[in-house]
């Protein structure tokens, strides 16, 4: 790994200032970035650690919303949203393994937007709002394709606000070697309708399966999605599964989530 300078600011303001430098990069749990640096796929000269910033580490339940600080670990979300938003807690509790959950953060996961990551499905499936040091971005506008987001250079995710649904369920079909989803679906039932977000399946990253949302908003039952077709044109095809297989999994996982919630 190339060497770098590690800085540990204690406020958002100082972190943003440190990130103005060229080749500086935010660093949270390191559960993605550190292995990437070992592989020399990233070689920042300055890492700005966000974990020492207290104002980025919180879970607050307020009315019908859950607010999570950008540098909050998966383990903390799993523990502290259990009662207010069990669908979210259960997703966080199944990311990777215990050691990954003790380090990895929601901000790092969303900013990275791995096409197989779990949190993007929760954010999109909940219609969450992503807060940064300079603005608020609706989840619908945040994810811009595989490893791409609306974040600008040096912009950091400071928090996420999730509207609490009536009920939600994350069905994750695990790729056993990586423990990431091979395909996973987040289904959330709101007064305004049902949202269905799919991860691990598309070349374009996390997406909403709108046909299923419409059908489920009318009739919330697994039968409602039975005859829908998932287009496999943009689906990921790799040694773990073909595009057609992932399209099929999308439907199966959606039906399982709905069955569990019915």
């Amino acid at each position: 790994m190339h060497n770098f300078e590690l800085v540990k600011p204690t406020s958002i303001e100082d972190a943003v200032a440190a990130l103005k430098e060229e080749e500086a990069q935010p660093y949270s749990g390191g559960q993605t970035l550190l292995p990437t640096m070992k592989a020399r796929l990233a070689a920042p000269t300055k890492l700005v650690s966000l974990l020492g910033i207290d104002e980025l580490r919180y879970v607050r339940i307020e009315g019908d919303q859950v607010h999570v600080g950008g540098a909050t670990t998966h383990a903390t979300v799993a523990r502290e949203t259990k009662e207010a938003y069990p669908g979210l807690a259960s997703l966080a509790a199944r990311i990777g393994d215990p050691a990954v959950r003790n380090r990895g953060t929601i901000g790092g996961s969303l900013a990275n937007n791995d096409p197989s990551a779990c949190y993007p499905a929760a954010a999109l499936g909940s219609g969450a709002t992503i807060k940064t040091d300079r603005r608020e971005i609706a989840a619908d506008d945040f994810f811009e394709g595989m490893f791409m987001t609306a974040l600008e250079e040096g912009e950091i995710v400071t928090g996420v606000t999730f509207p609490i649904p009536q009920a939600a369920r994350y069905e994750k079909f695990i790729q056993p070697a990586s423990r990431f989803p091979l395909t996973a679906v987040f289904v959330a039932k709101y007064d305004a309708g049902v949202r269905v977000a799919v991860t691990g399946a598309s070349e374009l990253g996390v997406f909403r399966w709108t046909e299923a949302e419409e059908a489920l908003s009318k009739t919330f039952s697994a039968d409602a999605v039975k005859d829908l077709k998932v287009d496999d044109a943009d689906m990921i095809s790799d040694l773990h599964g073909s595009g057609a297989y992932r399209a099929h999994l999308t439907k199966v996982m959606t039906a399982r989530a709905v069955t569990a919630l019915s």
Binding site: P98, N102, R103
Partner: peptide, 9 residues
């Protein structure tokens, strides 16, 4: 808390 010592500076 458990962490991977190969994945932390």
């Amino acid at each position: 808390e458990v962490v991977k010592a190969c994945s932390m500076f």
